[in-house]
Each structure stands twice: as C-alpha cells, then as structure tokens.
Simulated scan of single mutants.
Amino acid sequence: MRILVTGGVRSGKSYHAESLLQSQPTVTYVAPGPDETQEPDPDWARRLAAHRQRRPSTWTTVETVDIAGALARSEDAVLVDCLGTWLTRTIDQQALWEAPADDVTAVVREATRELVAQLDRPQPVVLVTNEVGLGVVPAHRSGRLFRDLLGEVNREVAAVCDEIHLVIAGRVLVL
C-alpha cells in the first residue's frame, strides 16, 4: 500500500495520514524538516512536538532529508511528512536557490528518482505533500521554482502510488 496525501496548508493532511497507519504495530515517521545546522526554528520544534504527542509510543521519528535511505533502512510501515519540506531542505542543503533552474531541476529529479525507487516495498508507505499549484503565481523566483518542482515531485510520486487522498478543510476525497 502506497498512499500520497495532498492538500493545502493546515488542511488536516498529517492527521489523516497518521490515521491511515494506526493499525500498524510500528511506524517510522520520516520528518525531513529544517536543516539542523541552521539556527533552531521554534515554530518547527513546536509542530514536531505536537505531532509526536499525538502518535503512539511505538512510532519512531527520523529527522532526515534522506527519505530514500530511511525507506531502505526501515522494516516498518513508513510515514513521510512532508515532501514540501523535503524539497526545501534538498535545495537548501545544496545552496541551489539562485542556481539556474535546469541545474536545480536535475538535482531534484535525481533525488525524486531515488525516493520513488524505494517505494516498491511490502510495508505500507504514506507520504504527505502540499498542493501548491492552486493559488496565485508567486511573486519571487524561489516561490515559482518551488511550486513547479513540487508539482513535478508530486506527479512522479503519485504515478507509483496506489491511492491519492486530497484533504481539504479536514475532509478527504480519494482520487
């Protein structure tokens, strides 16, 4: 079972994704958040703490940008939350925000290929992502680059998933 959960910010995606794995005895929760070498982000820390509090104690949290590696190493069900933060961190780590779009796209496509290759596994995988293409056109290059790349990542991941769940205002539509 491979499920991609998408929707807007604060729509209930994470809560829904977690509910899909409640019956699993153990889950590896992959959180590709902000780069730990940067100044600590108190908002991110609060979010992560809230997520940990509502999850069963048998769930393990792994904070890493290496989603493919985390999938390869885990023998449990895996929840990845979320591909948007993974994309941001991938671009941040390689200082690519000002690089030519073709260079950034090549790096992200390779990382996405590695991730997708690890989704062929017997244990369930639920991936959370943001749906960013429904809003206004970002005013800044970095916003447009992120929107376009996340759209590509979402499309590539969705192509190998068994189900896509769209979450809007806490309601779930299985596509």
Rank of each mutant, 00 (worst) to 15 (best):
R73G: 12
G8L: 10
E63T: 15
D103S: 13
T85V: 02
L119S: 03
S19R: 15
R46A: 14
G69T: 06
L119A: 05
G135N: 04
L127W: 07
A139W: 01
T88C: 11
T60V: 10
G151P: 02
R155A: 13
I168H: 01
Q22I: 10
V5A: 07
R144K: 05
A31C: 07
L48T: 09
Y29E: 09
L87Q: 02
Y15Q: 15
V172K: 11
T37A: 15
D66Y: 03
G133V: 08
P34E: 15
R55T: 02
V132E: 06
L83N: 04
V167N: 11
V128C: 06
A117Y: 00
T88Y: 00
A45Q: 15
Q93M: 13
W59V: 08
T85C: 02
T88G: 13
V80E: 08
H140M: 12
V153Y: 02
A95N: 13
A101P: 05
E131K: 11
F146S: 05
A17N: 03
N130P: 04
Q123L: 00
V116M: 09
S23K: 11
V160R: 12
R47Y: 12
S11P: 06
H165Y: 01
E36V: 14
D66G: 04
E98K: 11
L20R: 13
H140G: 02
A158K: 03
V157M: 01
A106F: 04
E75M: 07
Q93I: 00
R121S: 02
G69L: 06
Q24T: 08
H51C: 00
A70R: 07
V167Q: 07
V136F: 15
R113M: 05
D43G: 13
R46V: 10
A17Q: 04
T6M: 13
I67P: 11
L79A: 08
W44R: 01
R2Q: 12
R52S: 12
L20D: 00
P100M: 10
E36H: 08
L166H: 10
A68N: 05
Q93F: 05
E110W: 00
A50D: 14
A158S: 11
A77C: 10
Q93V: 02
T37E: 14
V108A: 00
D102V: 09
L175M: 12
R2D: 03
V116S: 02
D66R: 12
D76I: 00
V27D: 06
V136P: 08
V125I: 13
P42V: 06
R54C: 01
T105F: 00
A158G: 12
E110L: 10
V5M: 11
L166D: 01
P32T: 06
R89F: 03
G151S: 02
L83Y: 04
V157N: 07
P32K: 04
N154H: 08
R147F: 00
P40D: 01
M1S: 13
P32S: 02
R52M: 06
A159Q: 10
M1T: 14
H16K: 07
D103A: 15
V174W: 01
H16P: 05
W86V: 01
L145M: 13
L150E: 03
T60C: 09
Q38S: 14
R109H: 13
T37P: 03
V80S: 09
I3C: 12
Y29W: 14
A70S: 13
P56L: 07
L79H: 10
S11M: 02
V172H: 06
N154R: 05
R141F: 09
G170W: 03
W44T: 03
P25R: 09
R147C: 04
D92L: 01
A139I: 03
Q38Y: 05
E36Q: 14
